[in-house]
Amino acid sequence: MKKYISAFVAGFGAGVLHVVPVAKSFACCLILPVASFIALLLDKKANPTYEKISMKKGAKFGLITGLYAALFGTAFDLFITLITKNNDIVSMLPELQKMIIAFPISEGLRTEVLNIFEHVRNDILQYGFSFTYTFSIIINNTVINSIVGTIGGLVGAQVINQRMNNRDNT
């Protein structure tokens, strides 16, 4: 655990930023890759060494940052949904419904899809919790954050190693 404290800190930050709308629209897709990069930088500061960061370490730190971000992001999202009984999905549902209605699909399929939407919306508005929504964001957050985090870790390790190279050359 202590070894990955920087990943924990950066992952927590990314998880928080994922639920802050203004920060989300500003940093867009770069929140998690930057968090992985920061985790590596923090680790380098905590354990100063002249050795280059191995790609395995970069990928591992990125993956763990992503998993922490998924954990905190999901927890905050579910907690806020539970308290406010509202979230992004509920807000965008009318738009989604309009899109499904305009889509050239069979009546049976349309009704089925709209029923699923309606079920999720009603659960969230009534109880602040929907099993389908919870399942969906747990899977989504875990898979996407770990992939993006690992990519961020790999790219971050490359950037840090190049900075070290430049410093050695001067």
Binding site: C29, I89, L96, I100, E112, V113, I137, N140, N145, V148
Partner: peptide, 16 residues
């Protein structure tokens, strides 16, 4: 189209 909300939600993690 049944997977639309899931895909939409997936990309919401990487874009506003």
């Amino acid at each position: 189209i049944i997977g639309y909300p899931f895909v939409y939600n997936t990309f919401s993690h990487v874009c506003h």
